[in-house]
Simulated assay, not measured.
Amino acid sequence: MTERSTDGASSDQPLSFIEWAPGFEIGSTLRNLLVGALYWVTLPVSVFILTYAYMANRERTSAVSRNLLVLCFAFLLVLVLVPLLTGSGAGDTVVDREQYTSTVDRFSAEEGDRIKVHLQNKGTGFRTNVAIEGPDGGVILSESTRDEERYTVELEDGGEYTVRMTPHDSTPSTSGGVTVELLKPGA
């Protein structure tokens, strides 16, 4: 049996993750859970902290520790690359209104672009209306809601689009709002 020193290290056994990762302590389950949760919440930063600690102790770390660090890097890579590759990132916000009066906004788009429309109503019993008109003046979306709705529309023509938001009521506490995001093809 190998003897461990008071700091938890031994000369002939590799260090476990808890022994080399900053903040963890052998035998302190609650502390280790809290530190682990902190690492999870701050994953983009904590991966670099763990990498530094690993590199400082790499000759003495176990294979399990190395694999755990590789998994952290893989997870971070997935968090960054999936939105980029699938186009699930946010588009450009072209309209963001939360008013209690009728508004008219315009934005330019190209053929094949998509828009995501978020329509919300603050009050109960009243409706917030939105109409989006194409470059030719034809209505491509006309909806109203008492709650909250989301719509995605592919734009068939390039040009200037008009967004008309009309709250049913004229008081700020019961009126709604509309947000329109413009998404380019592949986004």
Results as ranks from 00 to 15, higher is better:
residue 1 M to K: 03
residue 2 T to W: 13
residue 4 R to E: 06
residue 5 S to D: 11
residue 6 T to V: 15
residue 7 D to W: 06
residue 8 G to N: 09
residue 9 A to L: 14
residue 10 S to F: 00
residue 11 S to W: 14
residue 13 Q to E: 12
residue 14 P to K: 04
residue 20 W to K: 07
residue 24 F to H: 12
residue 24 F to Y: 13
residue 29 T to I: 14
residue 30 L to C: 06
residue 32 N to E: 05
residue 33 L to Y: 15
residue 34 L to K: 14
residue 35 V to Y: 02
residue 35 V to G: 00
residue 35 V to Q: 00
residue 36 G to V: 15
residue 38 L to G: 11
residue 38 L to A: 15
residue 39 Y to F: 10
residue 39 Y to R: 08
residue 39 Y to I: 15
residue 41 V to D: 10
residue 43 L to E: 07
residue 47 V to A: 04
residue 48 F to N: 00
residue 48 F to M: 09
residue 51 T to V: 14
residue 54 Y to H: 05
residue 55 M to T: 07
residue 55 M to Y: 10
residue 55 M to D: 03
residue 57 N to I: 10
residue 61 T to F: 02
residue 64 V to P: 01
residue 65 S to I: 11
residue 69 L to P: 07
residue 69 L to K: 01
residue 69 L to S: 08
residue 70 V to S: 00
residue 71 L to W: 08
residue 73 F to I: 11
residue 73 F to S: 13
residue 76 L to H: 10
residue 78 V to Y: 08
residue 78 V to E: 06
residue 80 V to I: 09
residue 81 L to Y: 04
residue 82 V to D: 13
residue 84 L to W: 08
residue 84 L to A: 09
residue 85 L to S: 12
residue 87 G to W: 03
residue 87 G to N: 02
residue 88 S to T: 15
residue 91 G to H: 05
residue 92 D to G: 09
residue 93 T to V: 14
residue 94 V to H: 04
residue 96 D to P: 01
residue 96 D to W: 14
residue 98 E to F: 07
residue 98 E to P: 00
residue 103 T to Q: 05
residue 107 F to W: 05
residue 107 F to D: 03
residue 108 S to I: 11
residue 108 S to F: 13
residue 109 A to K: 03
residue 110 E to A: 15
residue 112 G to P: 01
residue 113 D to V: 07
residue 113 D to S: 01
residue 114 R to V: 05
residue 119 L to R: 00
residue 120 Q to D: 07
residue 120 Q to G: 05
residue 121 N to W: 06
residue 123 G to R: 07
residue 124 T to F: 04
residue 125 G to H: 10
residue 126 F to K: 10
residue 126 F to H: 14
residue 127 R to P: 05
residue 127 R to V: 09
residue 129 N to G: 04
residue 131 A to V: 10
residue 131 A to K: 11
residue 133 E to S: 15
residue 133 E to C: 12
residue 140 I to D: 08
residue 142 S to F: 02
residue 143 E to N: 03
residue 143 E to K: 02
residue 144 S to V: 13
residue 146 R to S: 09
residue 146 R to K: 12
residue 148 E to H: 12
residue 149 E to A: 11
residue 149 E to S: 09
residue 152 T to Y: 14
residue 153 V to P: 00
residue 154 E to G: 14
residue 154 E to P: 04
residue 155 L to T: 01
residue 156 E to S: 11
residue 156 E to P: 07
residue 158 G to A: 10
residue 159 G to V: 12
residue 161 Y to K: 13
residue 162 T to R: 09
residue 164 R to L: 06
residue 165 M to P: 00
residue 165 M to Q: 11
residue 166 T to G: 09
residue 166 T to M: 10
residue 168 H to K: 13
residue 169 D to C: 10
residue 173 S to K: 11
residue 176 G to K: 01
residue 178 V to P: 03
residue 180 V to C: 00
residue 182 L to G: 01
residue 183 L to T: 10
residue 185 P to A: 08
residue 185 P to Y: 14
residue 186 G to R: 12
residue 187 A to G: 13
residue 187 A to N: 15
